[in-house]
Write a protein that binds this DNA or RNA. Sequence first.
DNA 1: AACCAGGACGTGA
DNA 2: TCACGTCATGGT
Length: 230
Amino acid sequence: MNNNMKKIYDILLKEYGLQGWWPILDYIGENPTKTGSISGYHQGDYSFPRNDDERFEICAGAILTQSTAWTNVEKALLNLKKRNVLNEKGIIKLSHGKLKELIRPAGYFNQKAKKLKKFAEFYIKMDGKTPHRDELLDVWGIGPETADSILLYAYKVPSFVVDAYTRRIFSKLGMIDNKSTYDEIKSMFEDSLDRDYRIYQEFHALIVEHAKRCYSKGGDECMLQKQLIK
DNA sequence: AACCAGGACGTGA
DNA sequence: TCACGTCATGGT
């Protein structure tokens, strides 16, 4: 009762387990392969990103997955990785046309090519420094959710990610109404949880997992919904 | 064969 | 401010 949010987190965690987000491309020998095929999800390991390439990969994935299924994003990331351009210098070096071609499967490729270019410039300008949220929001193509995803998963900054699933689930639970702003919802979570990036990471991933099971077509398993309300 | 996916931007009112 | 159209591929 005092802390519904923590209770909901515990229920989801118990039900679905650690999610191990953000997914990172995997390797078979030297060859990059899609996330999750071996261990792209890294349950219980919070050491990611382990290097600068992985950090940039997370950022690029956050941009490419805007309103797009992850399976499509993987194809784009793999295209970039295989050409060794899944990094800031590579993105800068590519022509717009070539970049569009490589990220085509992720959809919205005209916009996303521009977004990746803009972000790569920003990334170089940051020179390894952790960006502030406002700085990310000033980059063309980066809105609140993408900014928070980058902060939380690429930089381990405890900045809660609010997405469409979060709205659906928690408005269904009566904890937010449809006129709530992004920042209001974000604050609701941050005010009632320990300021721990690991919890923020897992919670957002659990919300996505729960929504996919309960709010997609053929979504059953929604008895969980009843547990959550208590 | 419509519908939608881990959003953000541009526009008009 | 805010509601609404637009962007695009690949799954069901």
